[in-house]
């Protein structure tokens, strides 16, 4: 076994060791990840009532993905959450925010004038605020965090890049 090591491990050593994870870390992440994701979502939904909010929630959701990437390998995680998803989330977040802001403008009010929703559709101002928190800020933050992580991690493993490029259009 040891002779096999020293003779042929060089070129593949990198990719090999990527995946031989400590099962302790893996199992811990398995247990923790649902809780941290739930907590991130909780913060996102409860931005209006308790400390934190969608920015923090989004960051924690992103950190959960990072956690999974560290335990299961960055490559499989990248395959799991494709770049397209991330870009879609970030763009969708900005679009949602802009739409919620622009609709009152179209109705003759001001940008982000939530009162217009109440007048026109009977939706409480609170929900407009919530929609911005949930649909706007959180996806942007989470996807930017995860996207930066993936891109920064791309060069650290040699065989990863070509796939990443091909997966992204």
């Amino acid at each position: 076994m040891s002779s096999a090591d020293s003779s042929s491990g060089d070129s593949l050593g990198d990719a090999t060791s990527t995946y031989i994870e400590s099962q302790v870390i893996m199992v811990t992440v398995r247990v923790i990840a649902p809780f941290s994701l739930t907590y991130g979502l909780f913060l996102m939904f409860h931005g209006s009532g308790s400390p934190g909010g969608s920015f923090q929630g989004g960051a924690i959701i992103g950190a959960t993905v990072l956690m999974i990437a560290f335990a299961f390998g960055i490559e499989p995680t990248r395959d799991w959450i494709q770049n397209r998803t991330l870009v879609a989330l970030a763009t969708g977040g900005v679009t949602t925010f802009a739409m919620i802001g622009l609709i009152p403008l179209a109705l003759g009010g001001n940008f982000l004038e939530y009162e217009m929703y109440k007048e026109e559709f009977g939706i409480k101002a609170k929900w407009g605020l919530e929609a911005i928190e949930i649909g706007g800020v959180a996806p942007i933050v989470a996807s930017v965090v995860v996207g930066l992580f993936f891109l920064l991690a791309a060069g650290t493993m040699q065989d990863s890049v070509s796939e990443e490029v091909s997966g992204d259009e």
Partner: peptide
């Protein structure tokens, strides 16, 4: 609960 799960894992990761 979370400290009890994560702390030994962190110690294990570091010593490993």
């Amino acid at each position: 609960f979370f400290i009890f799960i994560t702390n030994p894992t962190a110690a294990h990761a570091i010593s490993r």
